[in-house]
Amino acid sequence: MSGRGHRPLEHTADLAVELWAPDEASLLVEGARALVELLTDGAELHGSAERPVELEALDPEDRLVRWLGEVLFLASTEGFLVTDAALELAGSSLRGTMRGEPGATARLRSEIKAVTYHDLQLTRGPEGYRARVVFDV
């Protein structure tokens, strides 16, 4: 597998994805891309707008879930579809800027209810970071 990416995993009732990246900040961005890809069926998007983001979490796993929760919230309420982000991580908090296509509700193809903590995994190995996240659909 190359340096960073994501792929779907089999899960009977819900959707799960595996993420990998050389560092944790890019892993979070990869997670956002995986989520937006599921929401839009992989539509091509134009990240023409920016938005600030800031959140506090309990630990890195929780940070991953909260970050994806943020991405999902913006997509489902405003149609802001994240394409990239510049994130700074400190302790278990996160701040930075998201880039995305604004007002793109028409590009949404499927509904995801939530990002779950179930079977959540975030590990650091010799080749970088890997994570597994289950979405409730």
Binding site: H11, T12, A13, D14, T116, Y117, H118, D119, V134, D136
Partner: peptide
């Protein structure tokens, strides 16, 4: 019953 998240469905 089937695989859910947390509690089984």
């Amino acid at each position: 019953v089937h695989w859910g998240y947390g509690f089984p469905i």
